[in-house]
Amino acid sequence: MDDAGPLYPQLVLEHRRNPRNRGRLDACTHAADGVNPLCGDRLRIELRCVDGRIAELRHSGEACAVTVATASMLGELVEGLDAAAVEVLGGRFAAYIEGRGDAAGLEALAAMAGLQQHPARRKCALLPWATLRAALAGSTAATTETEIRMHARTAIAPFAFRAATDADVEAVVDLVQSAYRGEGSKQGWTTEADMLDGRRTDAAGVAALLAAPHSKVLLAESADGLLACAHVERQGDAAYFGMFSVRPRLQGGGIGRAVLAEAERIAREEWACREMQMTVISIRDELIAWYERRGYRRTGQYKPFPYGDERFGIPKRDDLRFELLVKAL
């Protein structure tokens, strides 16, 4: 029988029969166990990273052909890449199998196109990606169910939202700084430490946002204190989203998503805005991919970076500019 249906082209069957990079590493720097609750499949990914880049990857575990073939192809693809690049490719792969993007850069994984017609099996292909990302993030466990659960090191306590007041200015400045600048920010993936030094914002900047009309600084707090913040401001029919910061060690755990969703809710329900806008440093592909997964669209409209204004930091490179992202609410 030649025709095994769209999910099992020859290349997939071949990778399943002879998976590349199958097995374990004698010495690994990162490892995670992933589970797909749909079928109970388990996949282990072990990595040896050098200078933040994947030097070796091995996968092991009992899983279906879709999972094994994806792990096999993915292992070949990500060698030499760092976490940010994996994030970009992972986002592209997820979009591709949902039929929302092309296979550019995905190489052999283009063979997983059949998943566009088999939504029920997509998680099988996402398991290796979720496991790899968990390993890179320093977690030991992953699931295809969402990034929210099971982050072993970064379990999140229940949190609540409120609007910041003048009393919160210092805490907000510290949080924003910790998420974007300096060595500490490198524990999370929103870091700009390699692009910018200096400050991201200051007390006067935050106080100005609090004083402005139709402007809110949204805080997510748990018993442990401030976890995340963001600024939302109404500008006519649209709302503007900025100063988005999550404590570095909690990143990748789903808080950011919740903050973004709450900001969108405020804009839509409280201000009746039709669109959310934001500007992102245009070379931050992985960050833009994160927003794209949440429905934002690149516009190709750019704004210059305020070179010379040290309130926004001290650039380490000269090609920075902002791109406008938008989402209909």
Binding site: G5, L7, C39, C64, V66, R121
Partner: peptide, 12 residues
């Protein structure tokens, strides 16, 4: 043979 693979192939 994995159960899900067989189910998808049989569906075909």
């Amino acid at each position: 043979a994995h159960a899900h693979d067989l189910a998808t192939l049989l569906d075909h």
